[in-house]
Design a protein around this nucleic acid. Structure first.
Lengths: 191, 191, 191, 191
DNA sequence: CATGAATGAGGATTCATTCAT
DNA sequence: GATGAATGAATCCTCATTCAT
């Protein structure tokens, strides 16, 4: 058996990609910058990822799965409907603030045409459970009756906006987090 | 360094840039694609814009100014506070839907590190009047008391999200436009 | 009008390609070696030839056409059948000896899978006239009855072999040229 | 530097090289393609052959020796002079048709600058006996008086040409084989 | 001023070879 | 010895920018 492919190195490349992508932009970052940041040779990157596109797609999936895990692993099944939405909001915002680079990269990735339909499907899969809860809360008339994807997208966009403000004024983190959720909740709650 | 002769050609280049940027992405578009789309020679582009970055920055400013003009030129000074916000919302959404390319490009531009602080300042300037109105409405307790930039950013983000849904289901344009504003207004109105 | 594309430069690139291809082999020659030998920048090569393959194909056609021109421009229509074949033989051998690089490159090109069917067709076209004469001479029973392509290929292969020997012993050029043709002619003549 | 253990593996690599070289060309074939086709690891190839060039040279020699063996092992010492030449012709053509890959590779190898003078010498050695017979037949005035290497090269080139036609029209194998030899023999026979 | 050919640095990827396991 | 990951020089091609016409 030869030297096995190192999971650490793989992670290092992915992490390095996040760091440099956040700083320079996905499209503007040469693979050489990634390999250098990861501390591997230029060619090594290509033993772990066949092409730059493949790397970008894998990164997309990894970030999506990480986010889903963060959102779901501490989900309060016993909470009331407001508590559940609040959980998503808080968890998302805190994760986003603590992982500013990952958030920036995710924002770029969502918009990139390099991401394949398959990657999008895989990245979306774990959110299906979240969607089910959301749809359910609408059917049970626990929140206002809008299409669920619309509500989810609004939550995402509003949370992103909130994160931007927290990034600018980190002292007011609690304030913005609460204010953002208030705005959102007023919008979708029944009264 | 005299101003180049043809203002038309300048416009043509900027318009062409919008079209190709929307399709291929700002970073992935070569200047040659822009000049070809504009019907001018590759070199000509550089007599109007010193560098690609300069072109991108001028485009940013032009789009910002256009948007401000759209928002302000028909502003209903006599309307009540809800009517004023509704005006911004409707105007922005309709403009964005009718000018999908420009909207896509703006979204990319906002996030690009190529845009200088100066460009951002210039682009922001005409929105100062809007800001004054917004700040005013808060001071007068016509809407809930959040920092104005936060509200403005939320309006922008929510309107963008709305436009995405309209782009996907153009038949439901009126529905989404209204739903989005409802969500927003519930969030910031006092009762 | 900008600087016009220079036919000279185009020729220079093609000539340089012949020289370096002959020395290092088509597949083993980087485009940078060609551009350097031609005295142009690396990028310039690609304004004249879209890809390396395109360059190779154009070279193939150019060499084929040149050869056809050499063979046909002095063709002795009045000569007897032996004289006609002798003309082809002599002309081909002398051209090949005088243009050793081109001959070497042609030999490589013929065998390369990079050469498109279209290029082969174009390169073959001017030889159609030669083929007609050959087929004719067979129909009229002026030479032995073999398929014409077979005879033509034999003539080519035998002439090539002859050229190799002349390249090694240039003093014996006349001897080998005559000996080679003798061998060929004995093979195909009726008595 | 002890001889590597498995002679089988060595053979497997050489055989694999023939197969992939024939398909993709010597220059265009990466060593990884050879090792994969041989069913060994990439690194293993280099315990059997120090460099790609070394492998290519050994392959050249192996093929040359194989050919010499084929030509000589069944040599009809009792036959008349025509029968002897006919034997070479037939054996060569049949071997070449049956081993199309090896023939194609040989053709490439002959022309490659990677083949060292030493390899050429070694590859030629077993043909010395053939040469002796040939020279002898000339001295005894059994065939026309041309330099033996010239005759041998002609036989080779004409046989190669014959093989190409048989490869294209395998039904006419017997015809082309006979026709080719006829052509050759008419050329060198005394009457 | 308009044109588009010329330039060469830079980018993604390949590949012969080395070396840790 | 066998394996295949690691390496980095080399390759083809792109593209922002310059400059001759």
């Amino acid at each position: 058996m030869a030297r096995p492919r190192s999971e650490d190195k793989r992670k290092a490349i992915l992490d390095a990609a996040v760091a440099v992508f956040a700083q320079r932009g996905v499209g503007a970052t040469p693979t050489s910058a990634i390999s250098k940041a990861a501390g591997v040779a230029e060619g090594t990157l290509f033993t772990y990822f066949a092409t730059k596109d493949a790397l970008v797609n894998e990164l997309y999936r990894a970030l999506k799965l990480e986010m889903a895990d963060v959102l779901l692993s501490t989900f309060p099944r016993a909470a009331d409907i407001r508590g559940k939405y609040q959980h998503f909001w808080n968890t998302y915002v805190h994760w986003g603030v603590a992982n500013a680079d990952k958030r920036k990269v995710m924002a770029q990735l969502h918009v990139l045409e390099n991401i394949t339909a398959e990657s999008r499907a895989i990245g979306y899969a774990p959110f299906a459970e979240i969607e089910r809860m959301g749809v359910d809360s609408i059917r049970r008339k626990q929140i206002r009756d809008y299409p669920h994807p619309f509500i989810a997208a609004m939550l995402g966009a509003m949370a992103e906006t909130t994160m931007v403000f927290i990034a600018q004024e980190s002292r007011k983190r609690a304030y913005y987090c609460a204010a953002g959720f208030e705005l959102f909740w007023k919008g979708i709650s029944l009264e």
